[in-house]
């Protein structure tokens, strides 16, 4: 299948007063057209920075220092600001976690949606408004005409997230990055939003990169899953493989430590310790200090990511048995 998005060896570095820190440290992946890639990991693992790097949204002291990110063959990382502006919103759109802070509070929802249509599409204001109202009703907002002239604070959380999706879709992007779009929402609203994203993906044939810390959401949504730990990919596989046969000790432990409905245990298995600070990246594998499987080479060198079985890649010297 045609690879739509190809990211290779992406490194994003932040300058701190203790020295440079690689928030993203050599991440590679590709997404076929129309498919969904899920990126999971705990806070600080670099999943959001990866997406921001693709959108050209990394501000100093951060900088993309290495790698390439191609969308339909065009390298996004080599574009200048005006070229990026032509692409952002039109070809790539992004949905953010907190719809309250992502909207401008002093402009109406409608004004914000038509703003990018006027920038990217060759249409006038009336036509854009008409389209915006159509979009609002497409994402399931009741009374779209009156919501169009509401301010963001007048909408509920789920409603705001819908409006943001409407905005992201306004120019029919080919690539959608959703960064924890349902984390701030209640489960019943979350189910509505996930349905909506999947419906729209089917309708427009969009490629989706879905970022979340919620393994349940990823399991229900993604064709392919990327597990990140301390800025690196530790495991990559199809959703089915990853959740039934996790091979990296981190993925394995993460799945075990999750309380699961219907499976009761007296005590939850835990991952010892905590994620080290990026500035204190341990020698060798980043996970070695917490890993029950660690063997000698783990403490000395960084494990390369290798294909253990077709379409299942793991960066580990001593993977969990399948």
């Amino acid at each position: 299948m045609e690879e739509h998005v190809v990211v290779k060896d992406l490194v994003t570095t932040f300058q701190t007063k203790h020295g440079p820190v690689n928030a993203v440290d050599g991440v590679s992946y590709s997404i076929p057209k129309g498919k969904t890639l899920g990126i999971v990991g705990e806070s600080g693992c670099g999943k959001t920075v990866t997406s921001f790097s693709l959108m050209g949204l990394i501000d100093p002291p951060g900088q993309v220092t290495k790698g390439s990110a191609k969308l339909s063959g065009r390298d996004l990382l080599s574009l200048d600001e005006s070229e990026l502006e032509d692409i952002r919103g039109k070809k790539i759109a992004m949905i953010f976690q907190e719809p309250m802070t992502a909207f401008n509070p002093v402009l109406t929802v409608g004004e914000q949606i038509i703003e990018q249509m006027l920038r990217h599409l060759d249409i006038d204001k009336d036509e854009a408004s008409k389209r915006a109202i159509e979009l609002l009703s497409l994402v399931g907002i009741p009374e779209p005409e009156s919501r169009f002239s509401n301010y963001p604070h007048q909408l509920s959380g789920g409603m705001r997230q819908r409006a943001m999706i409407a905005m992201a879709l306004s120019c029919e992007p080919e690539f959608l990055i959703a960064d924890e779009p349902t984390t701030a929402l209640d489960v019943t609203i979350q189910a509505q939003i996930l349905d909506l994203i999947q419906d729209i993906q089917k309708k427009f044939g969009m490629t989706v990169q879905f970022i979340t810390h919620d393994l349940g959401v990823i399991s229900e949504l993604a064709d392919e899953v990327l597990v990140m730990y301390m800025g690196r990919v530790c495991e990559q596989a199809s959703g089915e493989d990853l959740f039934s046969k996790p091979r990296h000790p981190y993925t394995h432990a993460l799945l075990n430590s999750l309380p699961k409905l219907g499976q009761r245990v007296e005590k939850l298995p835990t991952i010892e310790g905590q994620v080290p600070a990026l500035i204190n990246r341990p020698e060798g594998c980043a996970f070695q200090g917490r890993c029950p499987h660690a063997i000698d080479p783990c403490f000395r060198s960084q494990p390369p990511i290798v294909e253990l079985s077709p379409n299942h890649k793991v960066a580990c010297f001593n993977p969990v048995e399948a």
Binding site: Q190, A191, L194, S219, G239, S244, K260
Partner: peptide, 8 residues
């Protein structure tokens, strides 16, 4: 509630 391992 989204569940792990239920598939897509």
């Amino acid at each position: 509630i989204p569940r792990v391992g239920k598939g897509r």
